[in-house]
Design a protein around this nucleic acid. Structure first.
Lengths: 168, 168
DNA sequence: ATCAACTTTCAATATATTTTGAAAGTTCAG
DNA sequence: CTGAACTTTCAAAATATATTGAAAGTTGAT
């Protein structure tokens, strides 16, 4: 397979993969393009490579920067801005996890904590079951939170280290 | 907070949460409703509680059964079908992980394996970087696959056991 | 075998999300 | 200060996704 074809397929598949996880297809595609670009590229490069509009590129780049996955690069003597993505996949993964944890997991756990406080009769079957389900999800969320938090803050890179040996 | 209000908020939030993870809002809501229902309920019950059409309920219930999260219950003497959801959150989580792994993670890893085979000059900077990124993602995916596979097949329930103690 | 009760399907419709592109905003060299 | 180069914004348009509801299909009691 030729490099150009492989790149294209990677970008396209990464975009499709993203949509299955609640991530805008174009945002994932731009990220993929930046991942496989050796040097920083401009908005015009992205527009051309992915055949999308300037506005679309601009908004999605902004989001990617907000996710901490892409960096704006100013090259002296150049008028245009350049963009580049973190290439270390371990760092990319921990960054994505950190953000999703903050944006989605933590707020959900906070909400569940509130829903536990039911005024009605605690002996009622319905109330019991409801509280049990909420507690269960909260507990699971809390554990995921802890494991992922440890992963994100780990000194050792679990990727290269032996942390995950036990699951072989 | 009253039970009825808490239930409503749970259903609504769970639906919103689902959409952030690529899951149909209504499917997540039906699942939430079944989670907090003590006894099996019918399509009509779901239609009424969530104010949605029969077709919508039917299709999403079918998907939920496909995900292994909901069961069809035949009650002797009743003409209508009833539905119920697994309430053990650990089982729910492993089932969801098992399915997403099968549907999304495994195919992606297979694809990446193909993209590694580049015909062009392996010494070329672009080729090198591309292969490195693909390898990195494949490795990460493989590790996630292993850890999640272990979690799904674990004899011990990590939820109640001490498996996750080390992350406290 | 009939028919009422119930379930399933899917084309049409509605809704939500994404994308565009032109106008407004910003920056900076001369 | 001016204006060309570039970036950002956002209302309108396009597209993708979800929902409806009525017709077709199935089931089982009589």
């Amino acid at each position: 397979m030729k490099l150009a074809d492989a790149k294209q397929q990677f970008i396209s598949s990464w975009g499709a993969f993203g949509t299955h996880w609640g991530i805008n297809r174009t945002m994932a595609q731009i990220h993929a393009l930046l991942l496989v670009s050796v040097s920083p590229i401009t908005q015009d490069d992205i527009m051309e490579q992915l055949s999308i509009s300037r506005g679309n590129v601009n908004m999605n780049i902004r989001d990617l920067i907000g996710w901490g996955l892409v960096e704006r690069i100013i090259i002296t003597g150049e008028r245009k801005e350049f963009f580049t993505a973190e290439k270390d996949i371990w760092k990319v993964a921990t960054q994505i996890i950190k953000e999703r944890k903050k944006r989605e997991l933590d707020p959900m756990i906070r909400l569940l904590a509130q829903l536990e406080n039911i005024d009605d009769d605690k002996k009622d079957k319905d109330v019991k079951q409801f509280i049990e389900v909420i507690r269960g999800i909260k507990k699971l969320g809390g554990q995921a939170d802890k494991v992922l938090g440890a992963m994100v803050n780990a000194e050792e890179n679990w990727f290269t280290g032996s942390m995950l040996k036990m699951f072989k």
